[in-house]
Nucleic acid binder design. Structure first.
Length: 563
RNA sequence: UGGGGUGUCGGCAAGUGGUAAGCCACAUGACUUUGACUCAUGCAUUCGUAGGUUCGAAUCCUGCCACCCCAACCA
């Protein structure tokens, strides 16, 4: 396949993300006798649905494994019982597989390693590298110091290993209340890196875990559990986003002090931001919980399930991630790049159909009222093998309201009073008369057709530049279409004061439901999720939840520029 | 005022001492029974900034500036 050709909708995404510093690191390791098969992982916390930003993290890890013949794990990072739910676990695997990232190294749960985490903690206590601290949360904060001032040692820092061991076991046994004690690493309270100021390893949490039930009342912190999970699974390259850069020294401390032979290493990349798009899980959850959207798969959401419902393909999303690139620099990728990626793919394969989203009636006055005929129209002019379909024509039609201008702007090519235009695949018509209602709205156009021009050039050689789409009134099916500006957008955020509630800046019109659309009859048989190009209107897909509704995947580029 | 990062075209992003790739966006023209698609052309004398080293610097050195992350018993 031509490397530059757009994949057909439904093709498996290309694995390789192209040259980037992550691949460079791995190649450098391999060149120096790495001695182990590359092994990566995607470790989401099951506290929300995957979004397009997750797709970047997934694909960086997945593609790194595939490119170097390694394995890729899915691991639920479920070390905090109060935030995690099974609903999210199910959705994560579904979305991961839909994207095309096969977890061929296995699917794991961080919570399955609780016992090992506990055992390693006892080991650290025994070796004097960890201690039980009785400071409460406020006291601990006070002892931690600030960004510019070193912290002070906890009064419990010199506790003997024996005493800490006894206390830690009693913590596990449930003798103490939440927040009364923690297990801390003995590192350096004066470290300029806050993460190294005796970080908490285990905390007491009498909470029900979505998988472990009530088996535990002490839970490991991310910074302790994550390197252990990676090491146990044999992860070689732990690729995460850049906000964890400050945690790497602690990650290494855990790996080194527990004494893992095969050490995993953490590398960081910049997370994905897209212009005008809310990407924070916190806000996405808020949108769902406050009912501002219909759910995590509301087509305006940037979640993978919403993108899927809207008609985006896995390959278009991966293509987007690839084109956006992988680096460590803060970035804000133009959402038009995403739109380009899906448009590129759909243009190559989507079947063309005529649809009128905002109809205006057209009566062909010189066409017999009872007559019907059909015209064969190409399903995809770029692909002859897509064949043709017969489209019914009659004296009463609908055209798009936007395709007529009573007072046309300069360079107008479509219908105007006294003007001619081609009905795609059929006759050239001329507008003779506008019929208006009492309010002055145009309700009907009365036109004459040049009956010699049935799908051919006029014999007299005159040029008719505009071509518009149409639908026969008697043969059309009714539907509703959802039109989107783009993903759930933030408007005027630049002007927002600090501590903004971004919910106030969400664009309320990023979804517009337009009922009363007239579609070509063949579309009645379309399956939910099938993608078509509505000629001149954009790419649409039949909604998977609302049978009679069509979601606009993306507009055609520049097609409405003159308006 | 500490530490860790990052700064190359409007947005991404290559480049690792030899004289600024590519993509998106944008503009112009051609083609067109989708003003789509496609095609052609244009779009950084300059790499946050000021010095320095060098025959030669986006790439090396020094100072400065801007932005991001870190003070959860979140991940």
């Amino acid at each position: 396949m031509n490397e530059n050709a757009a994949p057909a909708a439904g093709d498996a995404p290309v694995t390789d993300l192209g040259p980037n510093f992550i691949y460079d690191i791995i190649e450098d390791d391999l060149a120096h006798g790495f001695g182990r098969a590359i092994h990566t992982r995607f470790p989401p916390e099951p506290n929300g649905y995957l979004h397009i930003g997750s797709a970047k993290a997934i694909w960086i890890n997945y593609s790194a494994a595939k490119k170097y013949s390694g394995l890729f794990n899915l691991r639920y990072d479920d070390t905090n019982p109060v935030r995690e739910e099974d609903e999210y676990v199910r959705s994560i695997e579904e979305d991961l597989r839909w994207l095309g990232a096969v977890p061929d190294g296995g699917i794991f749960y961080g919570s399955d390693y609780f016992q090992q985490c506990y055992d390693f903690a006892e080991q650290l206590i025994r070796e004097g590298k960890a201690y039980v601290c009785d400071l409460n949360q406020d006291e601990m904060r006070a002892f931690r110091g600030t960004l510019t001032q070193p912290g002070k040692d906890s009064p419990w820092r010199q506790r003997t290993p024996e005493e800490s061991m006894d206390l830690f076991r009693r913590m596990k046994a449930g003798e103490f209340a939440d927040g009364t004690r923690t297990l801390r690493a003995r590192i350096d309270m004066a470290s300029p890196n806050m993460n190294m100021r005796d970080p908490v390893l285990f905390r007491i949490l009498h909470a029900h875990h979505h998988r472990q039930g009530d088996a535990w009342c002490v839970y490991p912190m991310y910074d302790f559990a994550h390197p252990i999970q990676d090491a146990i699974e044999g992860i070689t390259h732990s690729l995460c986003s850049i906000e964890f850069e400050n945690h790497r020294p602690l990650y290494d401390w855990v790996v080194d002090n527990i004494g893992f032979e095969a050490k995993p290493h953490q590398y960081e990349f910049a997370r994905l931001n897209i212009t005008h798009t809310v990407m924070s899980k916190r806000y996405l959850r808020e949108l769902v919980e406050t009912g501002r959207v219909d759910g995590w798969d509301d087509p305006r959401m940037p979640t993978l399930c919403a993108l899927r419902r809207r008609g985006y393909t896995p390959s278009s999303i991966v293509s987007f991630v690839r084109r956006a690139g992988v680096s460590k620099a803060y970035s804000n990728v133009d959402i038009r790049l995403l739109e380009y990626c899906i448009r590129e793919e759909l243009n190559a394969g989507a079947l063309r159909r005529m649809a009128v989203l905002d109809p205006i009636r057209v009566v062909i006055t010189n066409y017999p009222e009872e007559k019907e005929e059909t015209f064969p129209i190409a399903n995809n002019p770029l692909d002859e093998s897509a064949g043709t379909r017969e489209v019914a024509f009659s004296a009463e039609l609908y055209i798009e309201r936007e395709d007529f201008a009573e007072v046309p702007p300069p360079k107008w090519q479509r219908l105007r009073p006294e003007g001619e235009v081609r009905l795609a695949g059929a006759y050239i018509i001329r507008c003779d008369e506008m019929v208006k209602d009492t309010a002055g709205n145009i309700v009907e156009l009365r036109c004459t057709a040049d009956l010699e021009t049935r799908n051919e050039k006029p014999a007299d050689g005159r040029k008719v530049k505009g071509t518009i789409h149409w639908v026969s009134a008697a043969h059309a099916v009714d539907a509703a279409a959802c039109l989107y500006d783009n993903l759930f957008t933030l408007e005027n955020v630049a002007e927002a004061p600090e501590d903004t509630n971004y919910m106030d800046y969400l664009n309320p019109e990023s979804l517009l439901l337009r009922p009363g659309c007239k579609l070509e009859a063949v579309l009645a048989d379309a399956q939910p999720g099938e993608r078509f190009q509505f000629m001149r209107m954009g790419y649409f897909c039949k909604d998977t939840k609302n049978e009679n509704t069509w979601n606009r995947i993306v507009q055609l580029k520049d097609s409405f520029k003159l308006e």
